[in-house]
C-alpha cells in the first residue's frame, strides 16, 4: 500500500508498546501490592476504553451505555462460575457473544438517530438493562452475586493470593486491544469507518453500506468491553447491577479515551495512565465523593480546553506541522 497518514511517527507507537512490555518485567523486581492493583485498574480501564474507542473513534458514534456491555461480561463470568460451576474462561466466549448480540439488536434502530439522540438512546437502553438486572432473580437481583473464593487457580481464574496473575492478564489484554485498533486503523475496513465519521452521505455515495459497517464495529466494540467486564468480575469477585452497569462505570470507560484523544490509537491508554493513578491517589487522600466530583470537573475541563484530547492536541500543535514541512 502507499504510505498513509500515520497519526504519529512510528517510533512513538514502538515506544508506547516498549513501555508496556517493560511493565511486564518491573513486577519481577518487586512492587507493592497496592501499585500492582493500581496498575491492574489502569490496564482494565485502558482496555475497555480502547474498546469503546473502536466505535466512538472510528465512526464518531458516542455510545453512553457501554457499562451495559461491561456488566454483561462481568455477569456472564459470575453466572457461569457461581451458578453452573463452569470455568469463567468460558465467559470470554459467552460474554462477548451476548454483548455483540445486544449491540446488533439495539444498534439497528438507534443508528438511525443523530449524535446526541443516539447518545441519549444508548444511555436509556443501559438504564433499562440496569433496572431489569436489579429485579432479575436469576442474576441475584439487587443483592448481586458473591463469588466463592478460591485462593489461586488458573482453571477457576482466581488469583487472590497473588494479584500478579491478574496483572499479566490485564497487560496481555491491553496489548491485544492496541493491536486490534492498529490493525483496523490500517485496513480498508477502518478507512471506511472513518469515511462514515467524516461524511456519512459521502460514504454512502461511494458504495459503503454505512449501517452495516456501524453494526459490525459496534459489535466488536461491545465484545471487547464485555471482556473487560470479565476481568473486573474475576478480581472483585462480587457483582451487583450498580457497581457494574451504572453511569459511573460508563464514565470510567469513556473518560480515558476522551482525555487521551477519541479516535487515536494510544489516546485511551494515555488517558487511563493519567486518570487511574490520579483517582487512586484522590480516593486515598480526599475520599471517593470528592474524587468523583473532581472527575466531573475533569470532564468539563476536557470539553472546554482540550476537546480533541491530549494526543490530537499535541499532534495538531507540534507534530503535524513538522511532518508537513518534511
Amino acid at each position: 500500500m502507499l504510505t498513509r497518514s500515520e497519526l504519529l511517527p512510528k517510533n512513538v507507537y514502538l515506544l508506547a508498546v516498549g513501555l508496556l512490555v517493560a511493565t511486564a518485567v518491573v513486577p519481577v523486581v518487586g512492587l507493592s501490592n497496592l501499585i500492582i492493583d493500581v496498575m491492574l485498574d489502569l490496564f482494565l480501564f485502558a482496555f475497555v476504553s480502547l474498546g469503546w474507542n473502536l466505535l466512538a473513534g472510528f465512526t464518531g458514534q458516542i455510545n453512553l451505555g457501554p457499562a451495559l456491555y461491561f456488566g454483561i461480561g462481568a455477569y456472564s463470568a459470575g453466572v457461569l462460575f457461581q451458578t453452573y460451576r463452569i470455568t469463567p474462561w468460558a465467559a470470554f466466549v459467552v460474554g462477548p457473544a451476548i454483548a455483540a448480540g445486544l449491540a446488533l439488536i439495539t444498534g439497528y434502530p438507534t443508528f438511525k438517530l443523530k449524535g446526541d439522540y443516539y447518545a441519549l438512546a444508548t444511555l436509556v437502553i443501559s438504564q433499562i438493562v440496569l433496572l431489569s438486572f436489579l429485579a432479575w432473580d436469576y442474576v441475584g437481583a439487587a443483592y448481586g452475586l458473591s463469588y466463592d473464593i478460591i485462593p489461586f487457580s488458573w482453571y477457576w481464574f482466581q488469583f487472590n493470593t497473588n494479584h500478579l496473575a491478574y496483572y499479566y492478564i490485564g497487560l496481555v489484554m491491553v496489548l491485544g486491544a492496541l493491536g486490534l485498533t492498529w490493525r483496523i486503523r490500517n485496513s480498508e475496513f477502518g478507512l471506511r469507518l472513518m469515511a462514515i465519521r467524516d461524511d456519512e452521505e459521502g460514504a454512502k455515495s461511494i458504495g459503503i453500506n454505512t449501517l452495516r459497517y456501524k453494526l459490525v464495529i459496534s459489535m466488536i466494540s461491545a465484545g471487547v468491553i464485555a471482556m473487560g467486564g470479565i476481568l473486573y468480575a474475576q478480581y472483585t469477585l462480587y457483582l451487583d447491577p450498580n457497581s457494574t452497569m451504572s453511569l459511573t462505570i460508563t464514565a470510567d470507560i469513556a473518560l480515558p479515551a476522551l482525555l487521551g484523544g477519541v479516535g487515536t490509537i494510544l489516546g485511551p491508554l494515555l488517558g487511563a495512565a493519567i486518570i487511574q493513578p490520579l483517582e487512586w491517589l484522590l480516593r486515598f487522600t480526599i475520599g471517593s465523593n470528592l474524587q468523583l466530583a473532581i472527575r466531573g470537573a475533569i470532564f468539563m475541563m476536557i470539553v472546554l480546553f482540550i476537546p480533541r484530547g491530549i494526543m490530537q492536541t499535541v499532534v495538531d500543535k507540534y507534530i503535524r506541522p513538522k511532518m508537513v514541512k518534511k
Binding site: 500500500m1 498513509r4 480498508e188 465519521r197 467524516d198 461524511d199
Partner: peptide, 18 residues
C-alpha cells in the same frame, strides 16, 4: 463531500473495490 480527516490517498483507498 470529501472525508475531511483522511489523506487524499486514504480517501481513494476506502472506496469498495466491487
Amino acid at each position: 463531500r470529501v472525508f475531511d480527516n483522511m489523506t487524499v490517498v486514504e480517501n481513494l483507498y476506502c472506496v469498495p473495490a466491487a
